[in-house]
């Protein structure tokens, strides 16, 4: 028995390693390799087609002290993150609450609200371009119908970021599903206990649902935060960063530096700064989570 078992273990180990090989190699060559390379590039003045030489921390210094566009794009990105994440969390959570009720046609509703996240990003963006059209777009037509003044949406500096945030919130289906799963795993005996004690819906929500959901909220928040910092596609398609860099999200700026201005060294440095920012913010979120995230098992 014993020998058999160890043979099995050995075989499992060998197969395990073999089967993990493709993923490991992929990670090594297509993720870790480029990451290390980009760090090296960030210390050079390499621009595509030209000679490159080692410049130490020059790129970082220029970015942090002499690049007004960097400052602007960072500001725009933070604004976008702050405008998107809280609203998207509320929207996804609210939708999940609604869709967790037992109503007729539940699956239809769930499909409807999940649909936007299946629509390919670019297709969704094209749709919103039409909705946002100031002259004949649907949104302004609705405003006009109710006698409200229209907006310039993504075409004016002031409203561009809120408009794009609005569009991102439209695609929260994935997060909604995660919330929905979380809601369904809230232990029912806790609700029953509240009922026994004569508590109503509000008490149930604030004393059971919300505390039980904090790990899910936390997870979604971290993921959304990272995702929002790295947003690129819709802005690239809709505004290319304009008007007057009002929607120049960080990654759009990075792309512009790398592929329009062909400064790969500088762009690599930008990407490392973004990495540091995201890591720092994620760490802060994790730190504060100890104060408000509740795990049933008592673990942290």
């Amino acid at each position: 028995m014993r020998r058999n078992k160890s043979g099995l273990l050995r075989m499992e180990r060998r197969w395990g390693m073999l089967l993990a090989l493709p993923v490991t190699l992929g990670l090594l060559f297509f993720a870790i390799g480029p990451i290390v390379a980009s760090f090296v590039f960030s210390m050079t003045d390499w621009h595509i087609g030209g000679q490159s030489s080692f410049v130490g921390l020059n790129n970082y210094e220029t970015i942090l002290t002499k690049d007004p566009v960097f400052t602007k794009s960072l500001f725009v990105t933070v604004y976008y993150v702050l405008a998107t994440v809280p609203v998207a969390i509320l929207a996804a959570f609210g939708l999940a609450m609604l869709l967790n009720r037992k109503v007729k046609g539940l699956s239809v509703f769930r499909t409807i609200f999940f649909l936007p996240s299946i629509v390919p990003r670019i297709a969704g963006t094209m749709l919103w371009l039409w909705l946002f059209n100031p002259d004949f777009g649907l949104l302004n037509s609705i405003f006009e119908y109710f006698g409200l003044p229209g907006s310039q949406w993504i075409y004016a500096e002031e409203t561009a970021i809120p408009s794009i945030a609005l569009m991102s919130v439209w695609g929260v289906g994935n997060y909604m599903i995660i919330f929905l799963a979380g809601l369904q795993s809230v232990p029912t005996h806790l609700y029953e206990a509240v009922e026994v004690d004569g508590g109503g819906a509000w008490r149930k929500f604030f004393h059971v649902t919300l505390p039980s959901m904090t790990p899910t909220i936390f997870f979604n928040m971290v993921m959304m935060q990272i995702g929002a910092f790295q947003s690129f596609d819709s802005v690239y398609v809709m505004t290319q960063g304009g008007p007057n860099n009002a929607t120049l999200l960080y990654v759009v700026y990075l792309y512009r530096i790398a592929f329009t201005e062909t400064k790969i060294g500088y762009a690599s440095a930008l990407s490392w700064i973004l990495f540091v920012i995201i890591v720092a913010l994620t760490l802060i979120t994790f730190r504060t989570s100890r104060k408000w995230v509740y795990y049933e098992g008592g673990g942290k």
């Binding site: 566009v69 007057n244 201005e261």
Partner: peptide, 19 residues
């Protein structure tokens, strides 16, 4: 020019949008 234009174009937007 490519680098100059990537600074120039956003600045000119202020003219085109009457800012």
């Amino acid at each position: 020019w490519p680098e100059i234009n990537s600074k120039l174009a956003p600045g000119l937007d202020l003219i085109w949008t009457n800012k």
